[in-house]
């Protein structure tokens, strides 16, 4: 009887692993198909596949945004709302710092003109600052030419500075069976993968702000999915960080991110599979009266695991 149960369990696990391997999304749950009446122990676990859905690619990268923008909120002007403006017009070039079009007065006004603001001709220069949004026109003195925001960074480039501050990194790989000597998985048994010791730098969310060229951007990064290269030719894409394995789960499959090897790792370099996890981040940014999305892919970490054949002894 005991042998029979063993065979049934192994068969069920094999069947489950087939289901799992056919579904690379690994977004699935397990349920008990039949329970031993006497012990209450589940005899057969089955996979309940998640509804078939296309692998969610997530939001698209929205590009650079426009480097020149109007924002009248500091002047308590809300119409027009903050947003991009042409970087040049008949009024000159746009400066985010001054929130207006800048034009070097040509020729320069005579000495004593209020635009000199007490300076003498030859010391700096007088510029016109014109806001077409408000028809506000100001003549101002500046020692140096006000920055041309059209030659400055785009919101995406500023967002990249914010991303640099986040110190995003690849996930710490959690995998069962554990990597390293003395641990070996079995062909046909579920493998669990997850982000170990998750924190804001490895799975998010994390916020950061950066400023450059008169643009301030706030960015929020979230781990969108992890692509697992299992080393046997299979690629498993898992949305989110996965579910850490616990001993009480026994032979269940991961409900969120798993794989089942069909062959042992014998013959592979070091007789191990190299499992690589690549993080795919979605970073949303807001600034310069615009919003956008940056996709960041390529943060990678790898471990090696051993997978062996299970031997069922039958007397």
């Amino acid at each position: 009887m005991r042998r029979l149960i063993t065979n049934v369990v192994l068969t069920a696990l094999a069947a489950a692993s087939l289901i799992l391997s056919a579904s690379t999304s690994a977004v699935a749950d397990t349920t008990c198909q039949v329970t031993d009446p006497e012990t209450g122990v589940c005899l057969i676990w089955i996979e309940v596949p998640a509804p078939e859905e296309p692998n969610d690619p997530g939001p698209k990268d929205t590009g650079h945004g426009q480097s020149c923008y109007w924002d009248g909120t500091a002047q308590n002007i809300h119409k027009p709302p903050p947003g991009p403006v042409p970087c040049s017009s008949e009024y000159g070039y746009w400066s985010n710092n001054y929130n207006c079009y800048i034009w070097l007065v040509d020729p320069q006004p005579p000495a004593g003109d209020p635009g000199w603001q007490g300076h003498e001709p030859g010391d700096g220069a007088v510029y016109r600052c014109y806001q077409p949004q408000t028809d506000l026109e100001i003549y101002m003195w500046s020692a140096a030419q006000p920055p041309n925001s059209g030659a400055g960074p785009t919101p995406r480039e500023v967002a990249t500075l914010a991303i640099d501050q986040m110190n995003l990194s690849a996930i710490n790989i959690g995998i069962a069976p554990k990597p390293g000597p003395g641990s070996i998985g079995i062909v046909g048994m579920p493998v669990w993968m997850w982000a170990a010791n998750p924190d804001s730098h490895t799975v998010g969310p994390i916020n950061a702000s950066a400023s450059a060229g008169g643009i301030t951007v706030t960015a929020t990064a979230r781990l969108h999915r992890v692509t697992w290269d299992m080393g046997d030719g299979a690629e498993v894409i898992c949305n989110g960080p996965g579910t850490p394995y616990k001993a009480e789960y026994d032979d269940r499959s991961s409900p969120t991110c798993g794989h089942t090897y069909q062959k042992s790792s014998a013959g592979k370099p070091g007789n191990k599979y190299t499992v690589t996890a690549t993080s795919d981040w979605v970073i949303t940014w807001a600034g310069a009266g615009q919003t956008g999305t940056i996709r960041l892919n390529g943060l990678t970490r790898a471990v090696e695991i051993s997978i062996g054949e299970a031997q069922v002894l039958v007397n």
């Binding site: 040509d106 320069q108 005579p110 000495a111 001709p121 030859g122």
Partner: peptide, 13 residues
């Protein structure tokens, strides 16, 4: 009548 640099603003005024 300073005309030392008209374009810079030192111009007869």
């Amino acid at each position: 009548l300073d005309n030392s640099d008209p374009q810079a603003g030192k111009v007869p005024t």
